[in-house]
Simulated assay, not measured.
Amino acid sequence: MAPLPPPDPLPAFVYKITPTAPPDPIPERYPLSELDRQDGFVHLSTSWQIPITASLFFTHSPSIFLIKLRLSNFDPASVKWDEVDGTNGCPHLYGNFGPADVVGVLEVKRGEGEGWGEVFEKAEVRGWLE
């Protein structure tokens, strides 16, 4: 992974994608996934990256949960924008997040034979992403 400069303008929100419902209430330190622990950072996505990330890593999941995080809550030095497989700046949080950082949670389901790209074209889902 090669570090990139942050996008300009910065998005207001970044998203954590999980295959299961997040704990309710969100704990002060969100439980990291095995991949996040292994890599040493929390994998996040921008709104436009979510369909790509979902299609690559959640191909067999009938639903996913999006945790919307306010980017300005994090120290800019703790968020690195890394090039991954030629994509533009995937946000990685070197640290953790908690309930004060979470704006909302949305469960997104796909129908029989429906791809993630189709799901994220729906107005109700697009409207929630910013």
Rank of each mutant, 00 (worst) to 15 (best):
M1Q: 07
M1D: 06
A2S: 08
L4I: 05
P5L: 08
P5C: 13
P5G: 10
P5N: 12
P6C: 05
P9L: 13
P9H: 11
L10W: 10
P11E: 11
P11L: 12
F13G: 04
V14R: 00
V14C: 04
Y15C: 09
Y15K: 08
Y15R: 02
Y15D: 12
K16H: 14
T18N: 15
T20V: 02
T20A: 03
A21L: 08
A21V: 01
P22C: 14
P22S: 13
P23R: 04
D24A: 10
I26R: 00
P27Q: 02
E28M: 08
Y30G: 01
P31Q: 10
P31M: 11
L35F: 07
L35T: 11
L35W: 03
D36G: 06
D36C: 07
R37L: 14
R37D: 12
D39R: 08
G40N: 08
G40I: 02
G40C: 04
F41T: 08
H43G: 03
S45A: 14
S45G: 06
S45F: 02
S45I: 06
S45M: 10
T46V: 09
T46M: 06
T46E: 07
S47W: 13
P51H: 15
P51I: 14
T53P: 00
A54L: 09
L56V: 09
F57R: 04
T59S: 15
H60M: 15
S61D: 11
P62R: 11
S63T: 05
I64Y: 06
I64T: 01
L66T: 05
L66Q: 10
K68S: 01
R70C: 02
R70K: 09
L71V: 04
L71R: 07
L71G: 07
S72C: 09
N73D: 07
N73K: 03
F74G: 00
F74W: 13
P76E: 10
P76L: 08
A77Q: 05
S78L: 10
K80T: 06
K80Q: 09
W81F: 09
W81R: 04
D82F: 09
D82W: 13
D82Q: 11
D85S: 12
D85F: 12
T87H: 15
N88H: 15
G89N: 14
C90H: 14
P91L: 11
P91V: 12
L93P: 03
L93N: 02
L93C: 02
G95E: 07
G95V: 02
G95R: 08
P99C: 07
P99E: 15
D101Y: 00
V102L: 03
V102Y: 00
V102T: 03
V103A: 06
G104W: 12
G104S: 14
V105L: 02
V108E: 00
K109L: 04
K109N: 02
R110N: 00
G111W: 08
G111Y: 06
G113Y: 05
E114F: 13
G115N: 07
G115Q: 11
W116F: 10
W116I: 08
W116G: 00
G117I: 11
G117M: 12
V119R: 01
V119D: 03
V119T: 05
V119I: 08
F120W: 05
F120H: 04
E121Y: 09
K122M: 06
A123W: 08
E124P: 00
E124K: 01
V125Y: 05
R126G: 05
R126S: 09
R126Y: 11
G127L: 15
W128T: 03
L129I: 02
